[in-house]
Amino acid sequence: MTPIPPHPPETAQTLNLTINGRQVSAQAGETILEAARANDIFIPTLCFLEGLSAQGSCRLCMVEIAGSAKLHPACVTRIQEGMEVTTETERLRDYRRNIIELLFSERNHVCAVCVASGHCELQDLASELGVDHISFPCRYPTLAVDASHRRFVLDHNRCILCTRCVRVCAEIEGAHTWDVKNRGIRSLIMADFDAPWGDSETCTGCGKCVHVCPTGALFEKGLAVAEMRKQRPALPTLVANRATEQR
């Protein structure tokens, strides 16, 4: 994880750049994503969540920068004076669609029976990007559902490994109950020493992980299809409050 250092306020300097041909200005140290969002320019994201460290892993926020042949993840790329950013091209859209399709193909996403249907970022992005079928063969891995916790459930079938849960637990709650085990295509979210969630000795039961989870992988017990509405905790406020209290 790469925590982006906080912007140095004293040296804050306004930079001018263009995004999709539009002149915008933003503070030095801000990322392309921050500058775009401040100007209501939509860039799709999944792993990014304001208030958590950005890790640039879902690759949905890739944008083009004039003068560079490579694509750049908007969530971790800092703006520069005179930068010309393009967030929407047919090529970018194709890559984004392919990435969404890869995610759907990786595990067993069945929107029709998912608690988070209608409130799921993966489902929304598929819609937004016009993904109307999955062109790659689905892998159909056999994955467990961990319902050992008193209040919450972890369904690996719906997990996209964005690690928001890992980061919110480590960075905000300070418990670091979650982490990733194994690697590559065999990666899985797990608690403690791979314990059932209900047996975790570090989990505080705060539920932040459930509410930052973009899909139905983490949800509250007792809910039926489409009933799990995620209430994103106001993470930047939490961070700011804590900093004030601890001063």
Partner: peptide
């Protein structure tokens, strides 16, 4: 490459497997 992929980013994790 599939077995050595760390699994962090989607294209490498799922793409190499596909």
């Amino acid at each position: 490459c599939m077995e050595e992929s760390c699994g962090k980013c989607v294209p490498c994790r799922v793409g190499t497997a596909q």
